[in-house]
């Protein structure tokens, strides 16, 4: 049961994030919602690294690891993928916040209801 908590957390994070993006109108909350979805996706990836119960040590060689077989390490690829996607997330969030700041400067807008000049 304990090992299944991350899976519940993944679904919960994605669900909460999507809920925020679909229901909340404040721009900053919108950005938070996107970050939550992203966290959910990253958590999912990193959970995959520890899916095999007996592979628990982190994939860094130290003298503590005995036995010398590759099967002792958790899967390294998801770690790497998560690193990549975290940086991508930082970049998109920064850009999004910059846009929101400029929108606030131009129109004094803080909710999406005022951000409706382009439609139809």
């Amino acid at each position: 049961m304990m090992s299944e908590i991350p899976y519940f957390a993944v679904v919960a994070l994605i669900a909460i994030g999507l809920y925020i993006v679909m229901f909340k109108r404040n721009l900053i909350k919108l950005a938070m919602g996107i970050v939550l979805i992203e966290t959910g996706a990253n958590l999912f990836l990193i959970t995959l690294a520890y899916r095999h119960g007996d592979r628990l040590s982190s994939p860094i060689f130290t003298s503590q690891i005995m036995g010398g077989d590759a099967a002792a390490y958790s899967l390294p690829t998801p770690h790497a993928l998560t690193l990549t996607s975290i940086v991508i997330g930082v970049a998109t969030t920064a850009l999004l916040l910059a846009f929101f700041m400029k929108l606030y400067q131009k129109f004094q807008v803080s909710t999406i209801d005022d951000m409706r000049r382009l439609r139809g």
């Binding site: 400029k102 951000m115 382009l118």
Partner: peptide, 8 residues
């Protein structure tokens, strides 16, 4: 200002 809206 509209370009920021479109971009966002």
């Amino acid at each position: 200002g509209e370009s920021f809206e479109g971009a966002a």
